[in-house]
């Protein structure tokens, strides 16, 4: 039996939830039993989790659950795991999932692999791989406890429609008292947050000054991409902190990462080299980033970026 926590931090189910359920379905085929999803809060559309392979969907709703409190959420998920007899529990490697996963592991006395990016193997022990050392290696973990907890890195599996909507069952959990009070939530409006973005346009010190960012923003707009930057750019205040990607910033794995005027230092690569396709625009043929790129353009970004924007516009019109 597999239990998947389908998160809905913004009041709706999004890609991290669908990926986790798709992954859970595949794990249930390996370990036997069904893939059961649990949702917490009042998000609508939990029945659709069936489409991604959940055979049952449980939901716990109570006004006190509107925001994450890791103690409340982990307690409810552990109760659900006990009630369905789950051997494997899956959460996303997201802000929400990371707050819960360790608690669940302790509650269930389960070994955990956090940030898994591959499906487990179950012949000769339960083993799961994850990327380590700034993506310079892959480590395989063996979990020796009867129960296992896995958190899944975003974009490591594509959501697959393998079933159909199921009736949502209300799950009767004991809800612990809230100990964290959420006063306010500030969200950045109108853009896909970086960890979830499929297309990212990023720029570094090669931009020379913050006024020049309009060409990056235009390219991002025509592509429907989210903008990012290197660390010195956010440290000097040219761009907001939440755009900083890399080892000490956000780690991302979009389908497409376009980097203009970024040298490709190892600490930068640590956060981006799991991107599916990397395009590097740099005027220095020796820039280390070219070694990590799929497509390279060695030229002045101030010529290339607007030309690329025009080419994308033309492509979108056809």
């Amino acid at each position: 039996m597999v239990l998947v926590f389908a998160e809905s931090p913004k009041g709706k189910f999004e890609k991290p939830a669908f990926e986790a359920v798709t992954y859970g379905k595949k794990v249930s085929e390996m370990v036997g039993g069904e893939c059961v999803a649990i949702a917490i809060g009042d998000a609508k559309g939990a029945e659709d989790l069936g489409i991604y392979g959940a055979t049952r969907v449980l939901q716990v709703n109570d006004p006190s659950l509107a925001h994450l409190d890791s103690q409340m959420y982990a307690s409810i998920i552990a109760q659900a795991a006990d009630s369905v007899g789950a051997k494997v529990v899956i959460v996303g490697f997201t802000a929400t999932g990371k707050s819960i996963e360790g608690r669940l592991a302790v509650k269930l006395s389960a070994g955990s692999v956090s940030g898994a990016s591959y499906l487990p193997t179950v012949n000769g022990g339960f083993k799961v791989k994850k990327s380590v050392f700034s993506s310079k290696a892959i480590a395989e973990y063996e979990v020796t406890t009867e129960k296992k907890v896995i958190s899944l890195v975003g974009n490591s599996i594509q959501p697959e429609a393998s079933g159909s909507a199921v009736t949502v069952e209300s799950f009767d959990a004991e809800i612990p008292a809230r100990r964290i009070t959420v006063k306010d939530v500030d969200t950045i409006k109108g853009v896909v947050p970086l960890p979830e973005a499929e297309l990212v346009v990023s720029a570094g010190r090669g931009m020379k000054s913050p006024e020049n960012w309009n060409i990056i923003e235009e390219l991002a707009t025509v592509l429907g991409a989210t903008t990012a930057c290197s660390r010195p750019v956010s440290d000097t205040g040219w761009r907001p902190h939440h755009e900083h990607v890399g080892q000490t910033g956000v780690a991302i794995r979009p389908n497409l990462y376009i980097a203009a005027g970024i040298s490709g230092a190892i600490q930068h690569l640590a956060g981006v080299n799991n991107s599916k396709v990397i395009v590097v625009i740099n005027k220095d043929p020796e820039a280390p980033f070219f070694k990590a790129a799929n497509y390279g353009i060695c030229a002045d970004l101030f010529d290339v970026v607007p030309r690329l924007t025009e080419a994308v516009k033309k492509f979108k019109q056809n």
């Binding site: 931090p9 994450l68 964290i180 009070t181 939530v185 500030d186 947050p193």
Partner: peptide, 8 residues
């Protein structure tokens, strides 16, 4: 949090 901050 993804795409923002919570004040607690």
């Amino acid at each position: 949090i993804e795409g923002g901050v919570e004040i607690l």
